[in-house]
Design a protein around this nucleic acid. Structure first.
Lengths: 201, 201
DNA sequence: ACGCTAACCGAATGTTCGGTCGGGAGACAA
DNA sequence: TTGTCTCCCGACCGAACATTCGGTTAGCGT
């Protein structure tokens, strides 16, 4: 076995840098709408060279959505204060999810567009459902302890919450000027405090 | 020219009923991921018969997204009380948009997944931008009159608002039990009153 | 200078794609 | 019965698709 820095051969792309470009193109044209020829053109490589790095188009998709899911679950498992209320924990998960989404934007974007056409996509949907399920549990506990209004179904609250978070992929661009922290603060503030400063139903 | 009821020939599908099935399949597999053969199978027709009703795959997409956009703009133009505040009008537009989204769910779903790969898709994106622009204007006026908290950029508020509305396509199914009115009420309540019943930042 | 190997390429593979074509079958008017 | 119209089909086409293969190139260690 040799280290990455001292190996032989001609160094250009490795799996990660290739994946980065591939995911960008997939997000522009859609996974199904992207051909390997278009991908090769954007990489400055020939079509056949791609197969030296990965087994095929589907593996690229698998690597991308896997990375997104790993990051999202890491944010979910990360619990700063075990004695905190479920409500505080929920707010932390939402806030953290915005940061993860921003940090891994292209990968999460691709993940959220998966429709389940292949085995890889089916498995991705499975892991997404697991994520949603654990968030819904957290919302239920937050509602039980009175931290979240109980005039609506916790499952509905959960869906609205992460519907808003996930919708960020449609417009947010980290390089566009708005800092991630500002976005996460605004989103959690609007969702948890309400659009109007005060007022009751 | 003859009327629809007294025409000759063998009646089975017409453009609308064919479109309905096509949009369903497009939403399941994705537009690019759906072949005309798969479409024909689901219609109980041969591939070539589809071309008797429409000029091709792209026209089906155009008809679908056109229908979605027409419905959304109709909801936007519909102003019940011209003397109402911008805030009240905004809340009405959000509420109405949820209803439109539910009523035209498959068509709006397809619209929101368009990426701009063809002329038809580019035009759809253009009309979507026009819609977003007019909503953003409304939010700005609502913020100016003090009906919406002004510690965040109105454009951001606008994106969060319709991000949440649009995210409904990911899970809401009208036949699943929850009435549209209940969903629209819950969404506007959570977004305009806030997740917590009271409390200030 | 030489050998080794990762990285790459051009050309060709079989398959699937959206779309075309000539004709058949049923329904109505005459 | 005959003509005409709508609706539909099987067979087919060129192009684009993902993938494969035999062989070449460029950089590193020796």
């Amino acid at each position: 076995m040799q280290s990455r820095a001292t190996r032989q051969g001609r160094p250009t792309y490795d799996r990660d840098s290739l994946l980065e470009v591939a995911v960008t193109v997939f997000n522009e044209r859609g996974y199904d709408g992207t051909g390997m020829e278009e991908l090769a053109k954007r990489l400055g490589l020939s079509k056949s060279s791609i197969y030296h790095h990965v087994s095929g188009k589907e593996e690229l998709l698998g690597l991308a959505v896997g990375r997104a899911l790993d990051a999202l679950f890491a944010g979910l498992d990360e619990v700063p204060d075990p004695s905190a209320t479920a409500t505080a924990r929920l707010e932390h998960v939402v806030h953290r999810s915005v940061e993860v989404l921003a940090a891994e934007l292209p990968y999460v974007t691709l993940l959220l567009r998966v429709r389940g056409n292949s085995d890889v996509e089916q498995q991705a949907l499975e892991r997404r459902r697991e994520f949603d399920h654990r968030v819904a549990e957290l919302v239920t506990r937050a509602a039980a302890e009175g931290g979240v209004r109980d005039d609506f179904d916790p499952h509905l609250i959960s869906r609205l919450l992460f519907g808003t978070v996930n919708s960020l992929i449609e417009w947010y661009r980290p390089e566009g000027g708005m800092p991630v922290a500002a976005l996460a603060d605004a989103l959690t503030a609007v969702l948890f405090d309400g659009l109007r400063g005060r007022s009751a139903s």
